[in-house]
Design a protein around this nucleic acid. Structure first.
Lengths: 167, 167
DNA sequence: CCGGCGGTCGTTACACTATTACAAAAATAC
DNA sequence: GTATTTTTGTAATAGTGTAACGACCGCCGG
């Protein structure tokens, strides 16, 4: 259990449970969770870390599915809209979020050394952003916060942004 | 004069002055501000809004310069490192910042209707992000905040995220 | 039953964004 | 003036995302 456990979504710890949650959610809402959509969501969940669109495509094909990029992007758009998946613009990757019922603004800590990403959900950050935008009379639809830096593990190993190997 | 004037960088209002500032800055620091780098910075300044790497390339070529994408990207890396240019990850575009001497975390308000981008620099946002990251023992190198939504002008015209034409 | 309708998916082609590898040229240092 | 470092050029390619169009599938009303 990491030091972030109380703070991050344990989005990758149990893909099966997450899929079940999704099944129930879509059953309840009547939104169509088709086999393709479910399959893509499962791939993202089992990746255990952010995954690129073309990696998803590769894994679809590994399972005998013939698919084009556009199929993946369409499903990603759907899953993002349904709040089951986040897009990380800085690294062009996608990761799962298992708490779509609880709409929240998420922030991401992206390690420049090891590539790991932690999702946090800090209301204080969300609040100051909302206030800053309001000052500019700007109506927020989606606040994207991607914090680049060095994670605790890499920092402990003596790594820095410029040099990702220990001294 | 916009309502943001006290709040945003008026980065595009006077390209000539910005270029002069850059000239002086690089003279002072001894960092090489080559003709190509200056030319690209000028193009970004005169664009008056975020501009893509290939648009920069096009404009270089319009002025008789034969150049490849890599040239533009190298210059962009340089300008970003020198804090004269920001990269907007969500829209793959670049825009000028005229206050590199005053290192600051910037936040961007990106209008989903008209595509305009305002740069704000809200210390409160910066502070809460720093605190949130510290809680996770994460060492921040660059906090990226890109707030998607509807700008004041478009909101006034009755536009929304889904429908970018007035009712 | 079936015809229309909206949503989903397949197929093809393409546009846009960014990088690798190596060579030439220019500026700087000794 | 030669060696070294930095910058730029050249060519090819990798990676990311969309457009356009048609087929299919489920659903609803007639």
């Amino acid at each position: 259990m990491s030091i972030f456990a109380h703070y991050t979504h344990d989005f990758a710890s149990d893909p099966d449970a997450a899929l079940q949650t999704a099944d129930q959610y879509f059953q309840k809402t009547g939104v169509r969770f088709t086999p393709l959509r479910r399959r893509v969501f499962e791939i993202i969940l089992r990746a255990g870390k952010p995954i690129g669109a073309y990696d998803i495509l590769k894994r679809l094909r590994d399972h005998g599915k013939i698919a084009a990029p556009i199929s993946v992007y369409r499903v990603l758009d759907f899953l993002i809209e349904q709040r089951f998946v986040h897009r990380l613009a800085t690294i062009n990757a996608y990761m799962a979020c298992v708490t779509p019922e609880d709409p929240h603004a998420a922030q991401f800590l992206i390690c420049q050394c090891c590539g790991s990403v932690s999702e946090i959900s800090d209301p204080a950050i969300d609040k100051t952003i909302a206030e800053g935008a309001a000052t500019a009379h700007f109506k927020v639809s989606y606040p994207l916060v991607e914090i680049m830096g060095i994670c605790a593990d890499c920092a402990k190993a003596g790594k820095t942004a410029g040099k990702c190997k220990p001294d």
